[in-house]
Design a protein around this nucleic acid. Sequence first.
RNA 1: GCUCGGGUGGCGUAAUUGGUAGCCGCGUAACACUUAAAAUGUUAUUUCCUUAUGGAAGUGUGGGUUCGAUUCCCGCCCCGAGCACCA
Length: 772
Amino acid sequence: MNLYDHTKIEKKWQDVWESSEPNKVTEDNKKPKFFALIEFPYPSGAGMHVGHIRSNTAMDIIARKRRAEGFNVLYPIGWDAFGLPTENYAIKTGIQPAIITKENTDTFRKQLKAIGFSFDWSREINTTDPAYYKWTQWIFLQFLKKDLAYKKKMTINWCPKDLIGLANEEVIGGCCERCGTKVEKKEKEQWMLAITKYAERLDKDLDDTDFLEKIKIQQRNWIGKSEGAEIDFKIKGSEDKIKVFTTRPDTIFGVTYLVLAPEHTLVEELLSKVSNKHEVEKYIKAVKEKTDIERTDAKTEKSGIELKGISVINPANMEAVPLWIADYVLADYGTGAVMAVPVHDERDLQFSKKYNLPIKEIELLDIKEATDKYGKLITKFKLRDWVFSRQRYWGEPIPVVHCEKCGIVPLPESELPLELPKVENYAPTQNGESPLASITDWVNTKCPTCNGPAKRETDTMPNWAGSSWYYLRYTDPKNSKAFADKKNLEYWGQVDWYNGGMEHTTLHLLYSRFWHKFLFDLGLVSNSEPYKKRTSQGLILAEGGAKMSKSVGNVINPDDIVKVVGADTLRVHEMFMGPFDQAIAWDTNTIAGSRRFIERVWKLHEKVSENAKNKKEEIAVLVHKTIKKVSDDIEEMRFNTAISSMMVLINVLEKQENISKHDYEVLLKLLAPFAPHVTEELWKIMKNDDSIHGGIWPKYDPSRLVESTVTISVQVNGKTRGSFISKIDEDDENVKKTALDMDETKKWVGNNAVKKVIIIKNRLINFVVGFP
RNA sequence: GCUCGGGUGGCGUAAUUGGUAGCCGCGUAACACUUAAAAUGUUAUUUCCUUAUGGAAGUGUGGGUUCGAUUCCCGCCCCGAGCACCA
């Protein structure tokens, strides 16, 4: 018989699928729909990562199973292609980012096709395609119309190496997420999106989703909803009040001083009345010079200064307490002012000790009563508005102009897409302007309203923009009249299952939920949540457990693996390595096991016999059990144990003299989503005309999951001393009698009195005896 | 510090959710096939004591509940991820 030749088989079927497009879907109302989604990749120059394969294969298995279950499955793919690495490469080489992107997507497409994913390639999208980003810009204009996009002068996180402003989410431990450089502060006018307006719903609506619990928790922590009281403290001898926010109004009698953030708007007003004005000004200046990291690190010692000559009145006991400003109070959370209760707050305690402020012991009030009596109930969020500007070239141009007369004027929708102009030099400028600023004939334009001279906005959008709505575009990727046709949006509805990385939980996942809710409010989509279910895969680390990185040189190239053992083996291996949701170190040596498994499946077809005489109950039961196990495990993403159970089955089948066509084909069907090429080939060898991937998912008979005999374990005082084979559901008395007859039982029970007998049906019997 | 995970053979892991701990795979050893090697197949493989037989210990650690605990409860130690002066 012929040997298993993965190169030949995989090439053969990939060619067939390329021309016949079996996974191209249309909106077919006769079938239930299933929308499977993976995060579309950023087509980096490094090519595909084995981590992509882990996520893609998992959803591919689910998509293929759903097809076999009769669903109309949309499993699309595209490119999230705007971004810094491409731009930096362009700066270095002078090659246009669009050309680099084209090369990279070509490579990725080729690599993905070589793994045999069942994507609908006819719906491929690319965020850098003007026909696509036309609609990203269009959605931005809708935000602008609803005043949810606005410009704000603010201190931004500035990366001095990448010369770019970063969103809070992109600052990791005070450093740039991309290059690790320490982030600095810079004053800049920025475009903002008012995600905080949606904070309440983004938090609450998680209740209705089927996201993994840890994903919900992480989003909730990020949104940071907290309920507390807003309480007014009057400034003594003035009508002015200071509003503080506290979650502990019950501690109000313990207030010994009040603290304002150094940036609090009241500070400037109060300065004239302060007796130590000079010192206070000096202190504020010093704080502002500190970087965010120095300022917000909980470990650095707190500092502050008293506003001498000013005191505030505690509304609970009318006591006058001093007013301070301190760097541990944040201007942009709550009201920027806190009441300090050293007995109940660790930070206030530290501060009090440092500056010798009094510490007052108190009895707590009822939290509800205190809120009603002294203030009002209020909800605050940690979530901040989204900094939406980037001073870079390779992003969607923000479609507005600045007119001297009319101010900020949105481009008319008819002028979309506003395409990126070709430039010579992609490098950002030292003064923080986008490279677009230097293209004067593009920048200088006419105001759409008054026709007078105007300048185009030169900031571009962050690369989270295009990915905030891409799944909607898949439903109707070529539409030029709308971002997608209403009918298609309705047909595909919510994404049924979205798998991706945990690192996107507080960025992409939250941003896209926000955009979706906005579109829902405009009546453009019919669900308020984009994703029904969200799961995530664990990282694949390099051998030894370090992160894979190009600079360390420990990156595994999937092409090399495919060449040697084939795509089917690589897919099975990545699913078999370990639990899907846990990080795991790559180990090239163990691939041999997955390869052997596929070779054994291949070889087994020689044992298939039309008149196989195996009517063994043991095998029939095992086949039913395996169908159940594999089916259930795929739903729970326990791919490792699904494969393990197929291995158990083949270990038994191999030992038979011959096997039935039926049993073999069940194995092939179960394996098909994991290893689509080899199973299709074997399906044809079994003389089937149809495709294995179009067929019917195997069913099991629940009544045939157990054998007629079971092994009963015999324990004495909870220790296993022997076992025997019994009829299933044997009468307790008979089980007891058999067990007592055994030599092992006699030996361990001895002459001791049996105090108690515990029988677990079909599993064990335990004799509890008194010790001598 | 807070919030989530996790700790089981030489290694990756599994365990019907309280019921024979170690399935499946890797590796290792011996044997078969071979002139030989590779591949493949067979057998063994938690550790310790024991000639076999047979014992004992054993799921990070210390307690507890139970006839019985990897699983449940309490305390502690390590590892990973996320957040972090959020009042």
